Computed example of a mutant assay.
Amino acid sequence: MYRCSWSNSNQLMQTYHDKEWGIPSKDDRYLFEMLSLEGAQAGLSWQIVLSKRANYHEAFHNFDIEYCASLTDADLLAIKENHGVIKHLAKLQSVRNNARVLLEVQKTYGSFAAYIWSYVDHIPYQNEWQSEDQVPAQTELSSQISKDLKKKGFKFVGPVTIYSFMQAVGMVNDHVTNCICYEPVGK
């Protein structure tokens, strides 16, 4: 059985790859979680972020959007000091900021999913990469989405982060074609 090689470093990464990565999701809470975690990853490895995911869930009340939008500066400092999250204050502040902006997007578009998935006409792109070195770090579309998100006020949403987000939530299927997850995710 072949898996995308990035998932082979440990069981946590393999489970994430097999059960979550690339599976299309249109759940706003999950989309917010992945946007937050991908933003936290900037400059770090996904393995570090995944190892702290449970701490993020505890600190941010399972990424409850309204709860995160209501956090105070003192709350964010307490999260930084008392939870096993990445200690980068601007990244923690971006969770609150992005929750607030996401609530505005929901008012305008009905849901964050309706807005973000409109970029792919609500149907995941099915890439056909033969090897992992063909998979891009960013695309013209991720750059376009990044610019629009920044214009709306989102933080830590550069084009590489957004492409990783698109992969994570299934907007693109970037499993290589011989990966055990390629066909199941593509259905």
Results as ranks from 00 to 15, higher is better:
P184T: 09
Y119H: 12
V172L: 07
G39T: 07
W21A: 01
C181D: 12
S36W: 12
S51N: 02
K155Y: 10
D121V: 04
A99T: 04
D27R: 03
V135E: 07
H17C: 02
G110N: 10
S143R: 15
T108A: 07
G153S: 14
S164V: 09
I123H: 09
K52W: 00
I123N: 08
Y56H: 11
E132A: 13
S142Y: 13
G39R: 00
P24T: 03
I145Y: 07
Y67N: 11
L35F: 08
R53M: 04
Y56D: 07
V135Q: 03
Q14W: 03
A40K: 05
C179W: 02
P159M: 06
V169E: 00
L50E: 00
M171L: 07
N62Q: 13
S94P: 05
E183S: 04
G39W: 05
S111W: 06
A113L: 09
S7M: 10
A59H: 12
T72A: 09
D28A: 13
C181H: 09
S70Y: 02
M171V: 00
D28M: 11
L44Q: 04
R29C: 07
K152S: 11
R96A: 08
F32S: 07
N8K: 13
I23M: 06
Y67D: 10
D73L: 12
D133T: 14
R96Y: 06
G84R: 14
A168H: 05
K87G: 12
D133I: 05
Y56F: 15
S142D: 14
E20M: 09
Q41N: 08
D148F: 03
V176D: 00
H61F: 10
V95R: 00
V169D: 00
K147M: 08
M171H: 01
A69L: 09
N97G: 09
F63I: 06
G186V: 04
K107I: 06
D27N: 15
A40P: 02
L141R: 12
L103T: 03
I180P: 00
W117Q: 06
R53V: 03
E183W: 04
S143I: 10
L103N: 08
K80N: 04
Q11V: 08
A78N: 14
Y16T: 00
S142G: 11
L31M: 07
A78E: 13
T139S: 15
M34A: 06
M34H: 07
I145D: 02
Q134M: 06
Y119C: 10
D28R: 08
Y182L: 02
Q138F: 10
F63D: 01
Q167H: 06
Y125S: 12
E81W: 00
P136D: 14
K147G: 00
G110R: 13
M13L: 13
W21V: 00
D148N: 13
S164A: 15
